[in-house]
Design a protein around this nucleic acid. Structure first.
Lengths: 258, 258
DNA sequence: CGTTGCGTTGAATAAGGTCAAATAGAGTGG
DNA sequence: CCACTCTATTTGACCTTATTCAACGCAACG
C-alpha cells in the first residue's frame, strides 16, 4: 500500500490552442514534429491528416511523480498519449488487493479501458514526472470517421492492447518465476531500444513490489531473482539500475525447463 | 496437448445473400430477430441501422466440435459473433506451452486480436458444435464511419475486452487457487444467467485441463478444488455437470484469507 | 467388452510465500 | 554538511501451497 498523494488539482492542464505561444513552443508540441509520432496514435498519417489530428490534441497535462493521471471510476472523456515519463496502471479489487496491469512509456496510449463503461476501470499513476497529450475521445472518434487511416490505426492500437494482455496472461498462467522476470526485462529492453535508449542499460522506475505485482510474484522473490540473474552473469543490478550483460542467456531462461 | 482435428475446409461457409432461402430461414438469420442482439455488436441500434448492419453479416459458418474457427497466423479478415455453441481461445508460445485466454459463449465476439497485426494472434477452437456470424472487418469499419452508434459500440466492445483481460490478470496475479476457481464459476454463472440459462446448474464444455490452463493451475489442482467445494457444500459436481448450491458461500471464498 | 480419454485421489516434492532482521539509499531538517 | 528518518531492498530460515508423479475409477464408444 503506497501513501502517495493523488491530487488531481495539482496537475497543470495547459490548453494549447488558447495560449499565445511563440513559434518555438508551438513547434514543440505538434504531432508533426514529435519524435514519437510513429509509435503513437497518428502513425502512418500523411502531412495533411496529421495537421487535422493535431487539432484534437487540445492540451498537454503534466503529472508529477506519484500523482494519478486518472483513477478508477473517474468519468471517461479522453485517452492519453505519454509524451515523457513513465506510468504504471493498476486495478484494485473489492478486498483491497492491487494488481499492476502494465507500465507505460513515451508513445504509448493510456485510458482505453474507460471507453466501454464511460469511466476508467483502472488507475494510471506517474512513476516519475510525466507529460501527456490529452486526446478527447469523442474527437478521436469524429476524426476517425473522416480519416479511415486514423480509424484503422485506433483499432490497431486497441487490438494490440488485447494482444499485449494475452501475453501477460501467458506469462502469469504458464511461466515460472524466473521466466517471468526474464520476459519482463527483455520486454523493457526492446521498448527502450525502440525509443532510442540503451537496450542493455536502464533505470527501473518501479519498485520491486510493483514488478512483483505485475509478474504475480512477491517482492522478495523478485529481489532474489535479480540476485540470481546477477550470480548467473546475465545482468548487473544495483538497486534500480540494471545492465543486461548476457541477453542470449536471458533469452535462454525461457523454456530452460518447463 | 490435444489431438483434435483443426481442418478448416471441413467448416461449411454459407453465404446468406447468395442463397435463395425461404422467409423462415431468412428471418432466422437477421440481427433484428436475433435474441442475442443486445449482447452482440449491433447493440443499441435502431431498426434502420440494424438493417444496414445485417448487410455486413454476409455469412454464417458452422464449426464442429474440436475444429478451429481460426488459428494463430491465419490472415485476418473478419471478426466473428458466436451465434450458438462454446469456444475456447488459446495462444501457444515458442516452446509449445498452451495458454487458454478465454471461453466464449453466444453473443460474444471473437477474433479482435487479429486487427492489429493483420493476422490472428491466437486460436479459437469450438468446444461443441458451433455457429458464428462472419463480420468482415473492413465492412464493419466502413459502416462504423456512417453509423456513429455502431462505431462507438465497436470501441466499447474492444475496450471491454481489455477490461476483461485485466480481470484475468488480477485473477492470475493475485488470487489463490480457491479464489480463482470461485471467480471462474461465478463468472460463468452470471454469463449463463444473462443468456436465459440457469445460473446455478450448468454443463462445463471444457476439460479440467482447459480450466486449469485458463486459471494458471494444473488439472489435478482444479479437480481437487471441485471436490473441496463439494465437501464444503458450495457446489455439487459430477464430471462436467455443476450445480451451485451456495452462491453466497462461493462469493465468500474471495477474500476469505489474503 | 476392451480401449481410450478424462477425472479423481494420495504421497512426496519443489517453488514460491511468509516472517524477520539487516542494510542501503534518498530525502529532510537542523 | 551531517544526523536522522523513512522507505526500498536484500538475505536467511522456515512454511504453505500448489505441482509432480503415480495409481485408479469412470464413462463413452467402437
Amino acid at each position: 500500500m503506497s501513501t502517495v498523494t493523488t491530487n488531481h488539482a495539482a496537475s497543470k492542464v495547459v490548453p494549447l490552442r488558447t495560449l499565445d505561444i511563440g513559434a518555438m513552443r508551438k513547434f514543440e508540441v505538434t504531432c508533426s514534429s514529435c519524435n514519437l509520432r510513429e509509435l503513437c496514435l497518428p502513425k502512418g498519417l500523411d502531412d495533411e491528416d496529421l495537421t487535422r489530428v493535431e487539432k484534437i490534441v487540445y492540451a498537454r497535462r503534466r503529472v508529477r511523480r506519484g500523482e494519478a493521471l486518472f483513477n478508477a471510476g473517474d468519468e471517461f472523456h479522453s485517452i492519453y498519449a505519454v509524451r515523457s515519463g513513465f506510468f504504471k496502471t493498476t486495478i484494485l479489487n473489492e478486498d483491497g488487493r492491487e494488481q499492476v496491469t502494465g507500465f507505460n512509456m513515451p508513445g504509448e496510449l493510456l485510458g482505453m479501458d474507460g471507453i466501454g463503461a464511460g469511466s476508467y476501470h483502472g488507475n494510471a499513476v506517474a512513476l516519475e514526472d510525466c507529460e501527456v497529450c490529452v486526446l478527447p475521445f469523442s474527437l478521436v472518434e469524429e476524426l476517425g470517421r473522416e480519416i479511415p487511416t486514423l480509424q484503422r490505426h485506433l483499432h490497431c492500437v486497441l487490438s494490440r492492447e488485447i494482444v499485449r494482455d494475452h501475453g501477460v496472461m501467458m506469462l502469469l498462467g504458464s511461466m515460472r518465476a524466473e521466466e517471468r522476470l526474464a520476459v519482463f526485462l527483455l520486454n523493457l529492453s526492446k521498448r527502450f531500444m525502440r525509443r532510442g535508449y540503451s537496450p542493455s542499460d536502464f533505470h527501473l522506475r518501479m519498485t520491486r513490489e510493483e514488478i512483483g505485482s505485475y509478474l504475480g510474484l512477491k517482492l522478495e522473490t523478485v529481489s532474489r531473482l535479480f540476485s540470481k540473474f546477477q550470480e548467473d552473469g546475465l545482468i548487473e543490478v544495483q538497486q534500480k539500475h540494471v545492465r543486461i550483460t548476457n541477453i542470449d542467456g536471458l533469452e535462454q531462461v525461457l523454456g530452460g525447463k518447463h
